[in-house]
Nucleic acid binder design. Structure first.
Lengths: 192, 192
DNA sequence: TCGCCATAAGTAAACACTCGATTACATTAT
DNA sequence: ATAATGTAATCGAGTGTTTACTTATGGCGA
């Protein structure tokens, strides 16, 4: 056989870049095939169809990032530390693989419905941390869901502004400011 | 003629609801025609094509909302007052016409590139207000672009959580909390 | 070590279908 | 009468997917 897993990765990469560049609907199987130096039919040796390709691309990385986020959070023992670590995780992810980050942002609305309860999910990770903060009495006023929305909004909209050229430079350089903004919104003192 | 402008509105409404429900690409001209009790060909009497229909739907409401936002901001003379008024404007918009709100959120990424410099734009309105605050020395630390991203993130992600069922009830009821969050993130005292 | 072969991997062409758009024609209101 | 609306059928292009076929490779018996 000729390099099974290798071409599968080649297809995934090509699809990723095509979807981000032209949109998921506009990026067709023909384009993906051409970009991967492969024929259309061969793609179907590795994926059941376009939906499956998109889903694998999304689900693996989505839950993978959730795991990363959870590990980062676990290494810290203060609430502010956990938040800071997660924010930094987002920034690093963006800088490491902007295409992948953009893809997840792009297709999340279409795929989020298919996410099962038990699948690791970045939103639930963050919400869990904030829930802990509330139960410990460290966060006043806001509910965990509300607070999660705020933190996600601050970080993701900043990333979105980067994507559309309203902000420039690496996201990592903004991590400090973003962390502070997140703590401020929760009325938490920056403890570091 | 049989009711020119009326059917045009009928088409726009039907398209809006279809796009929000099924996505812009999945919502076809045939479906729009059926939902408007009209034939496909008739749609082309009112719109040059699908792109034009989407663009009219987007541009009119996008710049329309920008104008609303600007008026709201103009009626206030403190920075905190302006921010609060705009946040409230967002919430009211969401509650008044959730479908339209969702549509703008849905298609913005595809349409934003076509927005010309001189077209009224909600982002620039907010950014203008924050720029004023920075020049007056009321906001420290953050740039106008950064701060705009944060405020948009807080409000829009909260709306997104509503859309996906993570938060419920009217957005207007959250206006106070959102305003406070926005002021906190800018390190501004709530003056009202 | 050699040759065979099951099987994984890839090809090229066609499939059935949907899409947005256009056309020639009919209806309606001024 | 005439311009604005609306209809029904059709067009060509493009879609994801399937098919029948070909090629390469790792393992296994002789």
């Amino acid at each position: 056989m000729r390099s099974g897993e290798a071409t599968k990765e080649k297809i995934k990469r090509a699809a990723l870049e095509l979807f981000v560049q032209k949109g998921v609907d506009a990026g067709g199987m023909r384009d993906i095939a051409t970009a991967s130096n492969i024929t259309e039919g061969a793609i179907y040796r590795h994926f059941k169809g376009k939906d499956d390709l998109i889903w694998q691309l999304f689900a693996d990385n989505f839950s993978g990032f959730a795991t990363t986020l959870n590990d980062l959070q676990n290494e810290q023992n203060t609430l502010a530390g956990k938040i800071d670590a997660m924010v930094r995780g987002f920034c690093r992810f963006y800088d490491d693989d902007e295409t992948l980050f953009r893809f997840l942002l792009l297709v999340q609305h279409g795929q989020l419905a298919k996410v099962s309860e038990d699948m690791q999910n970045p939103i639930d990770i963050v919400q869990g941390v904030l829930q802990g903060g509330i139960e410990a009495g460290e966060i006043g006023g806001a509910s965990a869901q509300e607070a999660t929305a705020w933190l996600f909004g601050i970080v993701l909209q900043t990333a979105t502004f980067h994507i559309y050229g309203r902000l420039s430079g690496p996201m990592t350089k903004r991590a400090d400011a973003l962390s502070q903004a997140c703590l401020a919104v929760l009325a938490l003192p920056a403890d570091r």
